[in-house]
């Protein structure tokens, strides 16, 4: 399949992040590894608390005390961002080559600064534009993200914008300095469904026209399918399965992934009943020794008491499970159906 392997634009290696809280050490990330190729879109999928956002913050250098990166590495085009020189490099990348769109557009803009001031600020800092140049470019950017009357909008304050419009502004800010990688952390969660689709279309268009790589963080499998080439599924602070979107959707290996897919309603396939994964993810304060999904897994066995290693799958992905590709939820779905009758 693979021809000459290019260097990934971003590579995360065995990343461990811990938070020191009153109740004890919370292991936010427990060995996360993935990479993003130039121009590629990767989806990080998982339920809330699985470590998706922590991963994004770690890459952006936003993990503040009392949280800290305990071990592992983050590499930008093969160069570490965690060494002292790397941190300097990271500071110069942030907002320019590496940018991020956050979950909540309502609180992500400074309420006392106009939209224009936000754009001018970032353009002047990273693109070294003069004030009038930055303003003109800001207007173009607002236009590019589909905001009408951009010139008038520049002088307005965030509270005069709707949620969807603010997220467009956030995207304009993120792409202002022509980034190579955009991290979008649940960019549509806070928005209405119709607006969600518009924002996702916008991201897809921008990716095509600018050729940028995107890491899309989401708990919604529905929006992954159309947008992403590769998928990594997170559970309890680590990645349990990764692979191309097509293979993961067609033949999920990990029971958790299978459950996730079977719990998402699909228009094109009405044969199966929806599955619900009982229970809750384990506490990251005292995570289990073995497989973290063990307590909720319908096909768990004794070997799951030890942590499964990551292994390659035939389709070119990877999975951390002792019994990959075992159809975990088939019986469950059947029994539910029987009961329903």
């Amino acid at each position: 399949m693979a021809y000459a392997q290019p260097t990934p634009i971003l590579e995360v290696r065995d990343l461990h992040v811990e938070f020191d809280t009153m109740s004890g050490l919370v292991q936010g990330l427990r060995g996360v590894s993935f990479s993003v190729m130039p121009g590629e879109t990767l989806a990080l999928v998982g339920e809330s608390g699985s470590g998706k956002s922590v991963t994004a913050q770690a890459v952006m250098g936003l993990i503040g005390l009392p949280g800290s990166i305990v071990s592992g590495d983050i590499l930008w085009k093969g160069q570490s961002l965690l060494t002292p020189e790397g941190q300097k490099k990271a500071a110069s990348l942030r907002g320019k080559s590496l940018s991020m769109v956050f979950q909540d557009p309502m609180t992500s803009l400074n309420p006392l600064m106009t939209i224009g001031a936000h754009l001018v600020e970032v353009l002047r800092r990273h693109m070294k534009l003069s004030k009038p140049q930055a303003f003109a470019r800001g207007v173009e950017l607002l236009e590019a993200v589909g905001i009408t009357e951009p010139r008038r909008r520049m002088a307005q304050y965030p509270h005069e914008f709707s949620g969807g419009m603010r997220q467009r502004v956030m995207i304009a800010l993120a792409i202002a300095c022509e980034p190579e990688l955009l991290i979008a952390d649940e960019p549509t969660t806070a928005l209405d469904v119709t607006i969600q689709a518009q924002v996702l279309d916008l991201l897809a268009d921008l990716q095509k026209s600018m050729g940028l790589s995107i890491v899309l963080i989401t708990h919604d499998l529905g929006i992954v399918a159309g947008l992403c080439e590769r998928v990594a599924v997170m559970y309890a602070g680590s990645i349990v399965e990764a692979g191309s979107a097509a293979t993961v959707f067609e033949q999920a290996e990990h029971p958790y992934t299978q459950g996730l897919i079977r719990s998402t309603p699909r228009l094109d396939d009405r044969r199966d009943r929806l599955v619900s994964i009982e229970g809750a993810p384990p506490s990251l304060l005292h995570p289990p020794k073995g497989c973290a999904f063990q307590s909720r897994c319908p096909v768990a066995s004794r070997q799951c008491d030890t942590k499964p290693a990551r292994q390659e799958t035939p389709a070119g992905g990877s999975v951390s499970c002792w019994t990959p590709s075992l159809p975990a939820w088939a019986d469950v779905a059947k029994t539910t159906e029987v009961h329903a009758r």
Binding site: D20, T21, M22, G64, L65, P66, S68
Partner: peptide
Amino acid sequence: EREKRYARGRAAKMR
């Protein structure tokens, strides 16, 4: 407030 205070205290100690 207690949690915040703890976090601040830990952060100060770590620094």
